[in-house]
Each structure stands twice: as C-alpha cells, then as structure tokens.
Computed example of a mutant assay.
Amino acid sequence: MLREYRNKATLGYFIMHVSNETFKGDGITDASLKSINTFVFNKGADQEVLIDEIKYRMPPFSVLPLMYNQHFVFEHPETLVAWQFNREFYCIVDHDAEVGCVGFLFYGIHHPMFVLLNKKEMEDLSDIEKNFSEEICLEDGFQGEMLRSLLKRLIIKITRIAKKQVKSYSDFSNEKMDLIRNFSLLLEGNFKKEHEVKFYASALNKSPKTLANFFAICHELSPLKLIHNRIILEAKRYIHYTDKTAKEIAYELGFENPEHFSRFFKSNTGKNISAFRKDD
C-alpha cells in the first residue's frame, strides 16, 4: 500500500509505504526521488538491502535513514514500513538543524546507520506509524501540518535513539560534531567542483592541517579520503545507472582531463572504468 500527500502550492511531497512490494529508491535515474529522504522501519526479521550496489543486512527491529541520492533495493520490501519526504514538505529552510534534512541522521558519522530499537522504542514507533496511517487518510486543511508534526516527532525519536548508540557522538562536544556535519554538507554541495581539502577548510574557517588533525581524532577517514570517496561513489552511480561515457562522467565530476579521472578511478577502486562497467 502506498499513500501520499502533495501540496501543489509548495510542491511538498510525503509518502507512506506499508507492505509495498514495489518500494525502492531509483537513485539518480529517477528525477522525482532526487530530493526525497527516507526512513525505513523494519518490524520483522533481518533482510538484505542493496545500497548503491553494496550489500548490507538490515537488522530486525531497526530503522534505516536513507539520503535523497541513495539507490536502494530491499530483499523483502513488502514487510517494511517506510516514510519519504522532500525538502519542500519538511525542509523549506534548514531550521532545527539536528532534526531536519541536514541533521545528524543524514549527515552524521556513520552511513548507512542502522538504528536498533528496544521493545519500548518499537512500541513508540508503532504508535507513530498508527498516527501516520490515520492522518494520511484525512484530506482536510490540517493534514499537511499534522503530517509534518508527526514527521518531526519521528525524527526526534530516532535521533535520540541513534545518538545513544553512536559511541563517538557521546565522546565529543556538539561543536565538534557540528564540524563533521557541516563538512559533510559542504562536501555534498561542492564535491563535483572542489576536490581539495583547502576549499572545505577555508569554508569552515579552519586550516587544512587543523581540519585533518580534527578528523584524525573524530573520524576514521581523513577529509581528503572522504572527498575522494564521495567522488568515486558518484562515479559508480553514473556507471551503474546511466549510459554516460567515461569522458562525460569525468566532466560531470569536475575533471578537465578524462585521463586524469581514469587514473583517479583506478587508483581508488583497483579497476579501470571499462572493467568496472563490464562487471556490473
């Protein structure tokens, strides 16, 4: 079952999936999903999920936040509950940063983040699910605001649970965690043009050395490695989900020299682009 809410004036879009066999995210090939974030609620057994062509196991009794640009396919989508929303529905401006489209769940340290739920938390989310099911059917002037209120409640609930489970979050101040989140936001908006750490450090009012030292303490990857990983991830998405040539992908990702991009891709994946596409 799929139920949706649309606001023609704001282009706000909210979707609720329950026992929907066709539920999946089609990544960059589906323009309608380009700005949609997703929460997946697994109330049953563990199952496999393919995220950007990488296999994971989604644990039982867990929630998985998925960003707008991720491609995903679940082994048993009919057993899941999922909520999807675009920026126009919930994030018209980036207020309430921790519980918005730029918050901890989408721009934190760990991705994918499987948030495990205890019995009480399962009951709480099941209650929220029930409220969503009721409101999505009430087509009146209050529907959009009620759905947004429920979504904010859901995000706050999951954020609280997730922060308790991420050890590194409790180890560092909010200021330090905000630096990681702000770096991730900058990276998402600029990785196709800016490939050097100095750009991101300057935007964050830090020196490249200070930023690198900070990530050495707070993150398992350096800023440069995160930049490279994001470029490679996007390159793989183009290879998997489009017919773009290697030269076209190189230009899309800010490489003026396609040969330089080819060497960059091979050094980071161990394969050249044609071999990677052949293995797909």
Rank of each mutant, 00 (worst) to 15 (best):
D52T: 05
I54N: 10
K55S: 15
L64S: 10
L64A: 07
L64Y: 02
P65R: 12
N69E: 12
H71R: 15
V73M: 04
V73E: 11
E75K: 11
E75T: 11
P77L: 08
E78C: 06
V81M: 14
Q84F: 00
N86H: 03
R87F: 05
E88V: 01
F89C: 10
V93H: 13
V93N: 12
H95M: 03
H95V: 11
D96A: 11
A97N: 02
V99N: 11
V102K: 13
V102E: 14
V102Y: 12
G103W: 00
F104Y: 15
F104K: 02
L105M: 06
Y107T: 12
G108A: 04
I109V: 03
V115T: 04
V115A: 01
L117E: 05
E121T: 03
M122P: 00
D124Q: 13
S126A: 13
S126C: 10
D127Q: 13
E129K: 10
K130C: 11
E134V: 15
I136Y: 09
C137V: 08
E139S: 15
D140I: 06
D140P: 07
G141W: 03
F142Q: 15
M146I: 12
S149N: 12
L151A: 09
K152D: 02
L154N: 05
L154D: 00
T159L: 07
